[in-house]
Design a protein around this nucleic acid. Structure first.
Lengths: 127, 127
DNA sequence: CAGGATCCCAGTGGATACTG
DNA sequence: CAGTATCCACTGGGATCCTG
């Protein structure tokens, strides 16, 4: 969109109470973030390569970038071990788990809607 | 990202239980959707023009597109009155309110984090 | 192994003009 | 008023190559 646009926030409806959303939505942008959080929770702390393999299709560039953002927001922890070859482990912080929980709720309603729609279609097809 | 990419979902971590997320995240993509839902809930059913004025900065094109998507997903209802000039009213459906609720939770944690961070910074600046 | 640097294309979305 | 249609600039992100 464009965050630098002059008259954007804090005016009327858009701004006000919902503005922290900007932050969190930028967090979630691209399905990648969700997948990363999901995998970190499901498979526990893991290394860059593992994560990359699990989040099928993501490029190293993207993974790095998203992890940095997540780290900056305090959702993910990065542990660097300067061995050769280096070993970097990522894990969810308390905040990360909190986000995961809310995402779980989203997934829940999404799943239910999907099921409802499927049922509705089946009904319509059968008549 | 690219949903058509061959080996993407249903493989390992990424796919499986979290896949309905794809749907809902595509829904939320761009802060616009959130703002639209937020405004429809806060200010009630309203016309295209009103909504456009409230969601400051959005283009007609975007607003139309997002509303169509929301409508397709059953989150928003569109009532068309073929008067001259035409009058179109948009409102949240039950699902729309459900989404709004979950978004509220997101906003809640985002707000708290923001406050925590601010407090931490203040503490650090004061020492 | 983890990731920085570069190049480059495709899709996203804004601006503008037009219509039922 | 509520869009649709067209054009175009910008950038997100993949591919590739390189390094500590």
């Amino acid at each position: 969109m464009n965050l630098n646009s002059p008259a954007d926030h804090g005016k009327e409806g858009s701004g006000g109470a919902s503005c922290p959303m900007d932050f969190i939505l930028r967090m979630l942008m691209g399905p990648w973030t969700t997948y990363i959080v999901y995998n970190l929770r499901t498979f526990g702390p893991q290394r860059f390569g593992e994560l990359k393999r699990r989040v099928a299709g993501i490029s190293a560039k993207m993974l790095t970038e998203r992890l940095r953002t997540l780290e900056g927001a305090g959702l993910v922890r990065r542990d660097y071990e300067a061995t050769i070859p280096p070993k970097v482990t990522y894990s969810l912080t308390a905040r990360g788990h909190e986000l995961d929980e809310v995402l779980g709720k989203l997934a829940e309603v999404a799943t239910r809607w999907q099921a409802e729609d499927a049922a509705a279609r089946a009904l319509k097809a059968a008549e």
